[in-house]
């Protein structure tokens, strides 16, 4: 059982849909949205609840659009 639970917030308007974050995620949390943002990019979104807040996605994001939270579950 995971001792930490994470979550990410993606600034979808600034996401360029490059998808570099997808292979960086150990838990396959991120997928490509069917929707596009104002610039016409298919932005990325979370597709499951398995985020552990490791920050890998945010660290490789060239546009710095991902904010990461992590909560220790007692």
């Amino acid at each position: 059982m995971a001792k930490v639970k994470g979550d990410i917030v993606i600034d979808v308007e600034k996401c360029k849909g490059c998808q570099v974050c997808i292979p960086a995620c150990p838990n396959d949390v991120i997928g490509v949205s069917k929707n596009v943002n104002g610039k016409g990019y298919n932005y990325v979104e979370t597709v499951n609840e398995e985020c552990i807040g490791c920050s890998n996605c945010a660290i490789v994001c060239p546009d710095g659009v991902i904010t990461v939270y992590r909560k220790r579950i007692e």
């Binding site: 639970k5 994470g6 979550d7 917030v9 807040g53 920050s55 945010a58 660290i59 710095g64 659009v65 991902i66 904010t67 990461v68 939270y69 992590r70 909560k71």
Partner: peptide, 13 residues
Amino acid sequence: DIRKPENLIYKRT
């Protein structure tokens, strides 16, 4: 519960 300032671990500088 998770998205609280005290749980923030990474944001754009």
